[in-house]
Amino acid sequence: MTEEIIIAGFGGQGVLSMGKIMAYSGVMQDMEVSWMPSYGPEMRGGTANVTVIISSERISSPIIKHFDTGIILNQQSLDKFEDSIKPGGVLIYDSNGITRHPERKDITIYRVDAAEEAGKMNSPKVFNMIVLGGFLKVKPIIRMENVVKGLKKSLPERYHNLIPMNETALQRGMEIIVPVA
């Protein structure tokens, strides 16, 4: 099993930390993982993306052009990465702020309105956990217990009191993700 994922959005959306939690969850499940961020001056311009690979085998290139799953959180990233998803792959996006929705017919598209949901939950910080929940519903490659372990590993100890809230957010994400016909 190898899952090649791109997560892309604005810097403040927790793109990199979502990737890190995903990667740590993979580690907890005894998988090989790699987490490769975009780095450099463009981060100041506000966009951020990270490639996460989770695999049962040794990972070859951490930098790739085609992805099994794209998790896309803003319009710029959708424009940039929609074509990078492998035929038959999955695109998950949050429709908040999206003016041109994804158009590809050869992939499966899901919408997870996580920004809206985070607003309802009154905690914008869990936005990325809602998205991650949605991803895990569609691609159950990591068991929930390992995701929670991964969360614990990637959060500094002083934030461990927030873990139950993050679990709730993961659950919400699983509930609200919908396929786009």
Binding site: V33, S34, W35, M36, Y39, I59, P62
Partner: peptide, 10 residues
């Protein structure tokens, strides 16, 4: 190089 410096792995 920058890729190995910046990426995370086990």
């Amino acid at each position: 190089d920058g890729a190995i410096g910046q990426m995370m792995e086990k």
